[in-house]
């Protein structure tokens, strides 16, 4: 039960990241795409992909009778992807 809830929490979080990434693409296309904004948009997509891979990696590790605890490095990577997405968003907005 507990690993399953944690797995779904990772999925939900990835989904929230997907919404943010889609909004980033929308912001790029509606603002009249320039070379700079396209690069930032590509970075956003890569960050989303990175987060997806992190979630996938963690979900595989959860699939055990007594799953190991989340490692600080994985948590830090997830947070860095989120914070970097916010920085890209700021670059697109301004």
């Amino acid at each position: 039960m507990q690993p399953e809830r944690t797995r779904l929490a990772w999925r939900r979080t990835t989904l929230s990241g997907t919404v943010a990434a889609v909004l980033a693409v929308r912001a790029t296309l509606h603002g009249g795409a320039t070379a700079g904004s396209l690069v930032v948009c590509a970075v956003c997509c890569l960050l989303w992909l990175g987060f997806l891979l992190l979630a996938q990696f963690r979900i595989r590790r959860l699939d055990q009778p007594t799953p190991p605890a989340l490692t600080p490095r994985l948590a830090a990577a997830a947070v860095l992807a989120t914070a970097a997405l916010a920085v890209c968003a700021a670059a697109l907005v301004v």
């Binding site: 939900r12 909004l23 799953p67």
Partner: peptide
């Protein structure tokens, strides 16, 4: 391990809040 997983889910819930705020900014 169940306590660690509960802590992990709380962490993820805060991360979702952060992503929602970023989505709000957009």
């Amino acid at each position: 391990y169940r306590f660690s997983l509960a802590n992990e889910r709380t962490f993820l819930a805060w991360l979702r809040t952060a992503l929602a705020l970023i989505g709000g900014g957009f």
